[in-house]
């Protein structure tokens, strides 16, 4: 029996991600106990940690700071596999331009920026914000979490802010929406996605399955 903690800091729907990993564990015949929790002791004992997030970064960071979630994530990523999703990924960065500017956890180098009102594709067509729907993800480098996921697979995104980092070596996947953006980051025990694997049907479930079998460090 292995354990997985989905960190619950009171923001948004964690049902989806918990249900998806439980489903994947059943399919793979893995004995897995999933806890959706903010309890530091349960998170410290879990074999794997998922750091999700939806909503506005200011509210998320307020709760993350209040509940000391940053410390839990920092500790977990030293020793165990951690998967950060969407705003969870953005919270790992140094700073976000959302809500007039918010300091984030600074666990991964990089910043979070707004797509802008006048986002256009190569043909000059006006692009809607949020970036919502299924976009192709180019695998920027090999990683155990990409195993069995065809390069260029579509994943489900919904976000108005995107990540920029100067550390190309940390970029695991990219997508294009008016501009090239980071779709996934890999840094030792952490794998982080801007898209929602729990909502990305086959490709997403495959990635979650890979996470459940990953021992950390690529």
């Amino acid at each position: 029996m292995s354990t997985l903690a989905v960190i619950d800091y009171g923001m948004g729907n964690l049902h989806s991600v918990a249900k998806a990993v439980e489903h994947v564990a059943r399919e793979l015949s893995l004995e897995l106990e999933v806890a959706v929790t903010a309890d530091a002791q349960i998170i410290a004992r879990a074999d794997r940690v998922i750091f999700p997030g939806v909503g506005a970064i200011r509210d998320c960071m307020a709760e993350i700071n209040r509940l000391n979630v940053g410390e839990m994530v920092a500790e977990a990523m030293q020793t165990r596999p951690v998967l950060a999703i969407c705003v969870g990924m953005q919270a790992l960065m140094e700073y976000s331009g959302e809500n007039g500017g918010v300091d984030c956890l600074g666990l991964v180098p990089g910043r979070v920026r707004y797509f802008g009102e006048e986002l256009r594709d190569a043909a000059g067509v006006w692009l809607k914000v949020p970036h919502m729907g299924w976009n192709e993800v180019r695998q920027f480098r090999e990683h155990p979490l990409w195993e069995g996921v065809p390069d260029g697979s579509r994943f489900y995104f919904v976000h108005s802010y995107y990540i920029q980092t100067e550390r190309d070596d940390l970029v695991a996947g990219t997508s294009r929406y008016g501009k090239e953006m980071v779709a996934a980051i890999a840094d030792r025990n952490i794998f982080a996605t801007q898209f929602h694997p729990e909502k990305s049907q086959k490709a997403g479930l495959r990635l979650l399955g890979n996470f459940l079998r990953w021992g950390g460090e690529a």
């Binding site: 948004g12 729907n13 049902h15 998806a20 489900y156 997403g204």
Partner: peptide
């Protein structure tokens, strides 16, 4: 929501913040 791993939107009779919370908690 327990069996379909794509986004799910729920509508009809959504009138209060509690209605929304209830649907999101159910998996919408």
């Amino acid at each position: 929501a327990a069996q379909v791993f794509i986004p799910l939107t729920v509508g009809g009779g959504i009138r209060t913040l509690d209605d929304i919370r209830m649907m999101l908690n159910a998996g919408a």
